[in-house]
């Protein structure tokens, strides 16, 4: 099955990536290629290394062995490479991590103004465009503490989009939300996916995975155990660990 939104060029490439926390082996020989426009959902039990893996992609965590290449730029200790990659890779966190001392609008304008040196007016216009897209333009002058969890997470998505990233990383974006707010965030993510953004998303929202993902990756104990298109992944899981995991989460 070929999908029109996936381009040929490889945006993210991981080759034999290994990482340890002291003696604990968190990532074991990870190999992964992501093409432009591809949407990937990563799932697995807690402690399986899925968050660590995507946090390695913008160097919030450093890997110790192997190569990570983002849009052709190798991720090394070179600060210039890290800066260049972070400009192009947006990230959304489980706990939103909005800056509580700034208004929603200032949260969105901060990085474009200081990192991309955009004039304030331009940054504000971009911010309002994306706040409009996540459907909260009317909250622009409020502080994050005045918003609900779902609204905060949508602001966080808008804040990342303001940097015009080519790649978006989502680290369990709905895990800290109350159930009634999950949908509003997922809706925004689905829209984003429909626009052709390259996305890597760590999540347990299997409905979202079925609807959006081009590929689902299952990780356990620091390894990629299985990867497949969502249809085959859910209906016909190959490994025992995947079957066990799926039976556990689908039961809930």
């Amino acid at each position: 099955m070929t999908k029109s939104h996936i381009k040929d060029e490889i945006e993210i490439e991981l080759k034999n990536v290994n990482k340890w926390y002291d003696d604990f082996h968190v990532l074991r020989d990870i190999n992964l290629q992501v093409r432009k426009g591809e949407r990937i959902v990563i799932c697995g039990p807690s402690g399986s290394g899925k968050s660590t893996m995507i946090r390695c992609l913008n160097r919030l965590e450093a890997h110790q062995e192997g190569d990570i290449t983002i849009e052709g730029t190798p991720l090394t200790n070179d600060v210039r490479n890290i800066d260049a990659i972070r400009k192009d890779v947006g990230m959304v966190f489980q706990h939103f991590n909005l800056f509580p001392h700034l208004t929603v609008l200032d949260n969105c304008c901060l990085a474009p103004q200081w990192v991309k040196k955009q004039p304030r007016k331009e940054a504000e216009a971009t911010a309002m465009k994306f706040l409009d897209r996540v459907k909260i333009p009317d909250q622009a002058l409020k502080y994050p503490g005045q918003l609900s969890g779902g609204q905060q997470q949508r602001v966080a998505i808008a804040r990342s989009l303001c940097m015009n990233p080519n790649i978006m990383l989502f680290d369990e974006p709905t895990s800290a939300l109350d159930p009634e707010m999950i949908k509003e965030v997922l809706d925004v993510m689905v829209e984003l996916a429909d626009e052709g953004m390259t996305m890597l998303c760590v999540t347990h929202e299997m409905g979202f995975a079925k609807r959006v993902a081009d590929r689902v990756i299952f990780m356990d104990a620091g390894e990629i155990i299985e990867e497949n298109n969502p249809h085959d992944f859910f209906d016909n899981p190959q490994s025992e660990r995947t079957q066990l995991f799926l039976s556990q989460i689908l039961h809930n």
Binding site: N58, L60, D83, H95, N97, F99, V115
Partner: peptide, 14 residues
């Protein structure tokens, strides 16, 4: 919180 440092890093702030 560590998340504030991470969010600033992820946005590319030096």
């Amino acid at each position: 919180p560590k998340g504030q440092y991470e969010a600033a890093d992820a946005l590319g702030l030096n």
